[in-house]
Design a protein around this nucleic acid. Sequence first.
DNA 1: ATGCCCCCGGTTCGGGGA
Length: 261
Amino acid sequence: MKIATWNINGVKARIENLCQWLKDSQPDIVCLQEIKSVDEGFPRGEIEALGYHVETHGQKGFNGVALLSKIKPDEVNRGLPGDDTDEQARFIEGVFSVEGGVVRVCSLYLPNGNPSDDPVKYPYKLAWMARLEAFARERMALEEPLILAGDYNVIPEPHDAKDPSQWVTDALFLPQTRAAFRRLENLGFIDAVRATNDETPLFSFWDYQAGAWQKNNGIRIDHLMLSPEASDRLRSTDIEKHVRAWEKPSDHVPVVGHFAF
DNA sequence: ATGCCCCCGGTTCGGGGA
């Protein structure tokens, strides 16, 4: 199975790119982030016509996540537990029946957190990461194949940025941010791309501004984090960077894991 | 040091992103 994550940066503005990529790449499960659409406005017809089941968790104007899948999920849960007052649509979980059992797949859009000295935004990011850790710990106890896929807005290591010195005060790379990401890894989650690829640098995002794509000034912030039961089935990964050169691209590209499910 | 650029809602600009 091919399981992918892609921050689409507006699904309505990007529907042609998305459909082209689905046709070309034939992923089995896709985790989308930043759909920037309410559920009723999601262009589900075009995607269903390509043979995908669609589950969305959207909101007006920004954020929003979705799961596209060739097989229908047995169960879907919306929202990250841990704060009933949080109205931002950043998390959706699906449970899928596969050969030999289930795979649990979450599409998550972790808060950016900038500016990092903002009294609200960076604390919200860290609180969200703490909630994700608590959720991950709970799910880990199930001992199932689990994939926490998404736009983490975390640069894990200096070699995941073209110029790490540009990011030292940024919410994506602050020591507290990286430490929170490591706490997730320390629960037993594996960064699928790094587990299968020694190349440096590897990027999944290039800013629209200042010719970042042309200069290959990127960062790696989109991750597939795997439970041990999922990493046992991991065969390889791809970062499908060719889509960044398409007309009207997202600033992120799909990150794909190939699994022996 | 700041902004570059892009999407959305709804209207020609502000909020939000990274």
